[in-house]
Amino acid sequence: MDKMIICRCEEVTLGDIKDTAEQYDATAREIKLRTRAGMGYCGGRTCRPAVDKVLEDITGEKPGDQIPLKVQPPVRPVTLATLGGRTNDT
């Protein structure tokens, strides 16, 4: 069970999150920053419900509390080149 991958982008397992919580007596936000769960390429759009639930179970914090697990999911990741005006025709 602990080998189950919660966040695929950063390859964070349930065990990683549990270990971090135990080792650092961390808040939900701190666990997220230490493990990078939900902070990968996809912006947490895939794993966020799972990350929220796992962190809530482990720390007892409700997601969206006073110090929220800040989420800024992009519509899609874009490159600096795209922002700079390059057209992407692939």
């Binding site: 695929r8 982008c9 390859e11 390429y41 996809c42 759009r45 895939t46 899609r76 490159t79 992407n88």
Partner: peptide, 27 residues
């Protein structure tokens, strides 16, 4: 970082697990 294999995951453009480089354009 880890070198573990990735392929189709959501298959609807959501998760970016299947990103490849096409004609020199990454992602």
């Amino acid at each position: 970082e880890r070198g573990t294999p990735r392929g189709i995951y959501c298959n609807i453009g959501h998760c970016f697990e299947c990103r490849t480089t096409v004609n020199g354009v990454s992602g």
